[in-house]
């Protein structure tokens, strides 16, 4: 147990390195430039160089800050995002902790991350940080509702909160195909709301460097700042992995009913490749958002949630429930 845990943590760090590199390359691709290309082959060691730089930087604590909370906040943020990784199924029969309330566990733990952000913003004793913290509080609390509702739609269809059972229920087809339009709607809502939940552009109002000069982590430097960065990438991975698991069948291969030969070929592709392929597709989509969209304003952000996403997902839940009762899905 302990060994697998340590392995998982090491894997997460490596994963974050890779995501950092991927983000730079995706950004460069979108912005018609090359991206990192000096350190290591094709710039792949750039992120290592950055980490080394951040490690050796002085972790300043401002004079007026509440030192205890200021230093605690990055740990809370990192720990919460690492806790969420536990129940994810990476491949067939490869799941660290198949908790029977997987979906609920994920949404409950991820709701804790906001406390770290609020703590960081408040304890920096910087007005920009405080505004950033307030924004993130309002933002995350409201978008959690939409995430929860869109997850519930699949829980209704599969009849279980357990991630492994949800994956099993997709053996004959992923929910996004089986569930017709209502599931596609909740998938889209999930992607939008989770982009907001993990504070990435166009919902990165909490950091909004052009408005708040960095928002809640304005005062952080060195390793403490790196921890916020680390948690951002872990969150990105977790959100994409959950979306892949719930809507796209996790490690389940792509099958078409009736085409046995095709299905057999699909089965030969290892299940972990299926899982990571889907996850990275969603990660790419979220990165794509970041490098093409301008940022929303805070009132627009809240309007989007309360006036559009939440009513739509509530009606959608009714549709999904009706569909589940009548058995209209495949």
């Amino acid at each position: 147990m302990v060994i697998t845990g340590v392995c998982l943590l090491a894997f997460l760090v490596v994963l974050c390195f890779f995501l950092g590199y991927m983000e730079r390359k995706v950004a460069a691709f979108m912005e018609i430039r090359l991206g990192p290309n000096r350190v290591g082959p094709k710039g792949s060691m750039q992120i290592v160089a950055d980490t080394v730089k951040l490690l050796f930087k002085e972790g300043l604590t401002p004079d007026g800050a509440d030192k205890f909370l200021f230093n605690l906040a990055p740990f809370i943020v990192v720990i919460t995002s690492m806790l969420v990784v536990a129940p994810i199924a990476y491949a067939r029969d490869f799941q660290l902790w198949d908790i029977n309330i997987g979906v609920l566990y994920v949404s409950s733990i991820s709701s804790m991350a906001v406390i770290g952000i609020l703590m960081a913003g408040w304890s920096s004793s910087n007005k920009y940080s405080l505004i950033g913290a307030m924004r993130s509080g309002a933002q995350i609390v409201s978008y959690e509702l939409s995430i929860g509702l869109s997850l519930i739609s699949i829980v209704i269809l599969s009849g279980s909160l357990q991630l492994s059972e949800i994956i099993e229920s997709q053996a004959n087809g992923w929910w996004i195909f089986k569930g017709h339009i209502p599931v596609i709607i909740s998938f889209v809502i999930f992607i939008i709301a989770s982009t907001a939940e993990i504070n990435r552009a166009p919902f990165d109002l909490t950091e909004a460097e052009q408005e708040l000069t960095g928002g809640f982590h304005t005062e952080y430097a060195g390793m403490k700042f790196a921890m916020f960065l680390l948690s951002e990438y872990i969150n990105l991975f977790v959100v994409s992995a959950i979306a892949a698991t719930i809507f796209l069948g996790g490690w389940m291969p792509f099958h078409i009913g009736g085409l046995d030969a095709f299905n057999h070929i699909m089965d030969y592709i290892p299940s972990s490749i299926w899982f990571f392929g889907k996850t990275f597709l969603i990660i790419f989509i979220i990165m794509w958002f970041r490098w093409t969209f301008p940022r929303l304003r805070i009132d627009q952000l809240l309007n989007l949630e309360w006036k559009y996403l939440l009513p739509i997902s509530m009606v959608n839940i009714l549709l999904v429930t009706a569909m589940a009762i009548m058995g209209w899905h495949f």
């Binding site: 029977n100 609920l104 409950s108 709701s111 906001v114 406390i115 609020l118 408040w122 307030m134 609390v141």
Partner: peptide, 24 residues
């Protein structure tokens, strides 16, 4: 587990965030 998760959702994710928010 269910109770634990609900505890976190309701108290940690909900009530404490509200308290902190009002403190801010």
């Amino acid at each position: 587990e269910f109770l634990g998760a609900v505890q976190i959702v309701v108290y940690v994710g909900g009530i404490i965030v509200l308290i902190i928010f009002s403190i801010l």
